[in-house]
């Protein structure tokens, strides 16, 4: 496991994640059906669609939180191909902690509410074995300022933060171990428009600066347009349209995508 952790080289030409014919059924009901795509390093992929279209199910499968009924997820972090559901659970958890991060819609799901902001950020470092308080502390302070939280709030609890700050704190906690791949489930959900704008701005800068590959699930097309390179449109558990973001939004082909784009005010 330590070899996975230490090597950081990424083959720019190979996809970092390849999903093949992913299907997740809940008994008779369909979560998502026959989804295939590839994600390259540094690329930001958006998944849009209405509530119940299977976006979150797909994301949970991709993030290793839910086992798909059929299909495979191949990962390629260090030139070593891994099939996500063939490796052992401890190894999968290790990957989750070191190689990828998950940003939850509700920061309460991604933060420890009874641990200070600094502790929340530092936990990821302690997870990977850092045992030097001073270094952990300075990383925490550094990341707080990168997500635009005043560093004198480092010992405050998340519950003393506003919603937008909690979300930014969650972002810092996810990004501090420098993951290669980040999953975001409605990262701006529940925030007011100005706070959303600030968060989106921050997200865009961080994702670009760090060269992180990201998959963002959202029902907000404005978010998709601002953050993503490529877009997948889902309906009833299946992908109905896929392409470059501008292409999909400006020239939608599928009837459902046309409906979706015309349903929002001009973004």
């Amino acid at each position: 496991m330590s070899t996975i952790k230490n090597r950081l080289s990424v083959d720019e030409n190979a996809p970092i994640l390849t999903a093949t014919a992913l299907t997740r059924l809940y008994g008779e009901r369909v979560g998502c059906r026959d989804v295939s795509f590839s994600l390259w390093p540094g690329e930001v992929l958006g998944i849009v669609g209405e509530s119940g279209s299977g976006k979150s199910t797909l994301l949970r499968c991709l993030a290793g939180q839910d086992r798909p009924t059929s299909g495979t997820i191949a990962l390629n972090f260090d030139g070593v191909p891994i099939n996500l559901f063939d490796i052992s659970e401890p190894m999968r958890r290790q990957l989750m902690r070191t190689k990828w991060g998950i940003v939850h819609q509700n920061p309460r799901d991604g933060l420890r509410m009874d641990v200070s902001a600094g502790g929340n950020i530092g936990e990821r470092l302690m997870d990977r074995g850092d045992r030097h308080y001073g270094k952990i502390r300075s990383s925490a302070l550094d990341w707080l300022s990168r997500v635009e939280i005043e560093t004198n709030r480092v010992d405050d609890y998340p519950r003393q933060f506003s919603g937008g700050m909690q979300q930014r704190l969650q972002l810092a906690r996810v990004l501090v171990p420098e993951p290669k791949l980040v999953f975001m489930d409605e990262p701006t959900g529940g925030l007011d428009v100005s706070v959303q704008a600030r968060l989106l701005d921050l997200l865009r800068v961080l994702v670009r600066d760090l060269g992180i590959a990201a998959i963002i699930v959202t029902h907000d097309l404005a978010v998709a347009r601002l953050l993503t390179d490529r877009l997948m449109v889902m309906k009833d558990g299946a992908v109905v349209e896929e392409g470059l973001t501008d292409q999909v939004l400006d020239d939608p082909h599928h009837a459902y995508t046309q409906l979706l784009t015309s349903a929002v005010l001009a973004a």
Binding site: R97, G118, G119, E123
Partner: peptide, 22 residues
């Protein structure tokens, strides 16, 4: 039990971190 089984003890140090910070 999983944390013990796989020696995932990072969270344990969070308690110590919190003490020192406070």
């Amino acid at each position: 039990r999983k944390m013990h089984a796989w020696s995932e003890y990072g969270a344990m140090h969070v308690r110590l971190y919190e003490d020192i910070a406070r």
